[in-house]
């Protein structure tokens, strides 16, 4: 058994063009580490590199139908048979104001 991960177009350069990859792990963090061992660089596009290791703000990650931000982020528990979906957030706006942009990014 494995966990299926659906990869958006913009990240398929890391998966040899594959739309779906499989991995294993009891948490989202462990799953991404497992996948990164076969598709190097993918984890870095999802998780910030600094020690905190937080999910990037403009990537949406779902466990089945739920946004992982409401499931504990990288600590979200996952089990075999779960389906993970990665989607780039669709966002923007008219302002170029840096402080305001920071507020948007802070969501």
């Amino acid at each position: 058994m494995a966990i299926q991960v659906r990869v958006p177009t913009i990240l398929r350069s890391y998966t040899g063009g594959s739309k779906v990859v499989e991995g294993a792990g009891g948490t989202l963090d462990a799953l991404f580490t497992d996948i990164d061992s076969r598709f190097p660089g993918l984890r870095g596009r999802l998780v910030s590199a600094d020690g905190g290791g937080e999910l990037h703000r403009f990537v949406n990650i779902y466990v089945n139908d739920e946004d992982v931000r409401f499931l504990g982020g990288l600590d979200a528990k996952i089990t075999d048979g779960d389906s993970i979906t990665i989607l780039p957030a669709v966002a923007g706006g008219s302002t170029d104001d840096r402080a305001a942009f920071g507020r948007l990014a802070g969501r």
Partner: peptide
């Protein structure tokens, strides 16, 4: 048409759950 989760005159962001459904 998508909801603007920011409801703002200067920002937009698709609601993450609505985006998943539409995608």
């Amino acid at each position: 048409a998508m909801r603007n989760a920011e409801r703002s005159p200067t920002f937009y962001r698709f609601d993450s759950i609505e985006q998943l459904k539409v995608w």
